[in-house]
Design a protein around this nucleic acid. Structure first.
Lengths: 262, 262
DNA sequence: ACCTGAACACCGTTCAAGT
DNA sequence: ACCTGAACACCGTTCAAGT
């Protein structure tokens, strides 16, 4: 019922509030001085630990040592809190040193690093990722999982600077989004499946495993099917996508070169 | 509050209870003879009309002209009901004449028709698709959105018959799943965004639109970005995927041919 | 056999009241 | 300024009771 779990002392943010007071005594979540950032951070933490379905205004309040009603001072309601959770997790990308300074090694390198950064976030917050994937975006031109104006701007600028046309850059954003969404959602849901059913007493969830002998091919390939090749598949598909975009770029460069010499 | 909406008289099921008594007075959903299939059908209908968030045991009961508690005779609980909803919607594929008889025109044609069938379902039930995408699968080798033993078996058999190796067929299933998931979730969420915010009084949801001038590239490309090219992108990515799989097949054929002549 | 009423524990959210 | 208590309408779910 009550969860007094001692949790990771240095949170995702990894900042030390400029090394000041810090009572350091009680096992609270950083108490004294509730604000929106801390509420959202606690929500992410709570979802990571207990799952999305367990997040409740009342339980989140308890987790913060406060009554649920106190949260409404910092968050207009539950829906907005979930939006804030999505934003908070995506914002972790800003602090990822492996993703930054895209200038150096060309657009391919940037797309590679960005993709890996998003993947790290998805794997770090598997319970949050479905939210990132399915919450209605704030604007029609923002697509999951890169639902941030700043990253979209950076993405487009990187491709435009590399010589992509406006149309090609926008098309690339969509292809890239759909690639990340599909792969990461699949990967995250695949990992989740082993922990998700709570007990499976014995023959309880016989749904899939029972009718298995009626499907000889699945039965025969089961070892192959349950193998987790997500990481390798991610790399390969990302490589393929980048190559495809590279061909688009070459074609449009060739076209404009031809145009300027004719 | 109360929804007395006169709704499509012939439901998905399209059966007329063998033309018997039918009081014809009340706007019920085909009453008399509640069973699991009807409950799940009504749930799908309700989600399609009112959105996933509006589905409640009590409201679904009311929609069926019954108290909520009566549903527990046909459905063990809400979670199981949602699983049933996913299954019901996926099962619509079995009735799609454009998808069947994959034998005739080769595996490429089969993958094409199957993909379009799944896309039709996603667009027909945009409120259900996120559920299809994110519910934990019943088995680790079942991946969304093709979460059905029967379709997985059919899929693998089709590729194996065409000469794919076991490994290649399984890899193809994963690539295909991730492609469908990414594209369709993006497309569905893109369509949903225009109806999802209820009113937007005036400057209410200024989140994205306000900071737009701080992002000149997005601002400049906004018309391009909000254009909906989903259909064309779907076709093109599907084509690319099938070509890629075709190359895999050729390579493995060539390898085994070389092996048998050496 | 099938449905309902009443009840329980738990939600999100509002608001006057406390400190 | 910030939090709480009490209250409201609504959940999912159980179970004895009705027909």
């Amino acid at each position: 019922m009550d969860d007094e779990r001692e949790h990771d002392p240095d949170s995702p943010e990894g900042r030390g509030a400029s090394a000041a007071v810090l009572p350091a005594g009680p096992p609270d979540t950083g108490r004294r001085g509730l604000d929106r950032r801390r509420v959202l951070g606690a929500a992410v933490e709570y979802i990571d630990q207990h799952g999305l379905g367990a997040l409740t205004m009342r339980r989140l309040g308890a987790h913060l040592g406060v009554e649920a009603m106190a949260l409404y001072r910092y968050v207009p309601g539950r829906e907005n809190l979930l939006d804030g959770v999505v934003e908070t997790v995506i914002d972790e990308l800003y602090g990822d040193p492996d993703v930054h300074m895209q200038a150096q090694h060309g657009w391919q390198d940037f797309l590679q690093r960005l993709a890996h950064g998003v993947r790290r976030i998805a794997l770090a917050h598997p319970e949050v990722f479905p939210l990132i994937a399915t919450r209605p975006p704030a604007a029609p031109w923002l697509r999951p999982p890169l639902r941030s104006l700043r990253w979209l701007e950076t993405f487009l600028d990187a491709l435009l600077a590399a010589g992509f046309s406006d149309e090609a850059a926008v098309a690339a954003y969509r292809a890239y989004s759909s690639f990340l969404l599909g792969h990461l959602l699949l990967e995250v849901s695949h990992r989740g499946v082993k922990i998700s059913p709570e007990d499976e007493p014995e023959g309880g969830a016989a749904d899939a495993t029972a009718d298995l002998e009626q499907h000889p091919t699945i039965d025969r390939l089961e070892p192959l099917l349950s193998r987790d090749e997500s990481a390798a598949e991610f790399e390969e598909s990302l490589e393929t996508l980048i190559e495809r975009l590279g061909r688009v770029l070459e074609e449009s460069s060739a076209r404009s070169a031809r145009r300027s010499t004719s």
